[in-house]
Amino acid sequence: MAVEPIDPFSDSRVTHETAKVNGYTYHYILGVPQNGQYKATIFLVSALLSSAIPFLISLGLRVVAPDLMGFGGTDAPKVPPNSIHLYGYKRAADDIAELAKQLGCKQIILGGHDWGGMVVWRTALWHPELISHVFSICTPYMAPQKDYISTEQLVKGPLPQFAYQLQLAGPDVEAALQSEEDIRMFFNAMSGGRGPNGEVGFSPERGVHLDDLKKLKRGPLLDEKVYEYYVQQYSRNGLHGTLNWYRTREANYKDDLDLPTDKIEMPALFIQANYDSVLKPSMAAGMNKHFTQLTRADVDAQHFCQVTHPDKINAILKDWLDGVVFGGKSTL
């Protein structure tokens, strides 16, 4: 089931497209089976340029992988003067719905990882008529809250591993990492790079280890082409847009107050990474009660499991697509 990952600079299996979506320019990767025929359209949010894109194309799906607001080739409006709600789940859900409409989709399959996981769960709530099936890798479903709980409260309470989010939401990382060389060092850290004495560039408890970044080499999670692509893309607008996603907790809470339901009605799949140090398996306890049809699977891997264990992730997706999405089963 091995498939060669996407070459981000030149790959005949996909094209790089842009669209004006609710006033902002979005970049997305588009992949269509060679014969031009496809049985459904699947949107991948935070796809990490993984082998999932060509693998899903090989299964007869049209694949759309958009960069979220502030990421890659998509616009990164400054906050202020713009509203932080531009980086919220509600805005992302509405933009996905609009892009799907522009691509002629009456319904889509929707999947995501990391921030994309939170986006797909909320999109399923905001636009249930659009989403036929939904899946998340690593990111468990987190129901809307009646009372506001800050990131600081989470860190002091049940989720101390979210401490890195406090750092990323603050001014220090954005101020320290602005040049292309800074971005390069940042991706050395985020790709698992280490220094000569075992120094690391990131940890959940501290965030980005700014003092150690110059010591790191590129890590194993990104091959050279993908690494260079990310450095190029992030150098366009810096980290401001990306880090805004860590500044939206209150905005998302306020938007969630208008959600009509907290229940995911369409068939769903959740893939747990058993060794994820941030989105730990304990966080997914009890989420079943919010679903009508939920399939659960797991992989013995850490957070970036699509990169480290692509065959396992692709096999899980294929079983679910064959059995639930196209086979009509309720679960596997």
Rank of each mutant, 00 (worst) to 15 (best):
W245L: 10
W245F: 13
Y246P: 00
T248V: 15
T248Y: 04
R249S: 14
E250R: 15
A251S: 15
N252V: 10
N252Q: 07
Y253F: 15
K254C: 12
D255C: 08
D255K: 06
D256P: 02
D256F: 11
D256E: 14
D256G: 03
L257P: 03
L257I: 02
L257M: 10
L257C: 00
L259I: 06
P260M: 00
P260D: 06
P260A: 12
D262C: 05
D262E: 13
D262I: 09
E265R: 12
A268V: 09
L269V: 07
F270T: 00
F270V: 04
I271C: 04
Q272E: 13
Q272F: 02
A273L: 08
D276F: 07
S277R: 06
V278R: 05
V278S: 07
K280R: 15
K280M: 15
K280W: 07
P281Y: 05
M283A: 13
M283N: 08
A285Y: 09
G286S: 12
G286F: 05
M287K: 01
N288S: 15
K289W: 00
H290Y: 15
F291T: 01
T292D: 14
Q293V: 02
R296L: 12
A297F: 05
D298P: 03
D298W: 09
A301G: 14
A301N: 09
C305R: 03
C305F: 11
V307D: 09
H309L: 00
P310A: 11
P310Y: 11
P310L: 08
K312Q: 14
K312E: 15
K312N: 00
A315C: 02
I316Y: 04
L317S: 10
L317G: 04
D319W: 03
D319P: 01
D319E: 15
L321R: 03
L321C: 05
D322I: 08
G323W: 07
V324G: 00
V324S: 03
V324L: 04
V325Q: 01
G327D: 08
G328S: 07
K329L: 06
K329S: 14
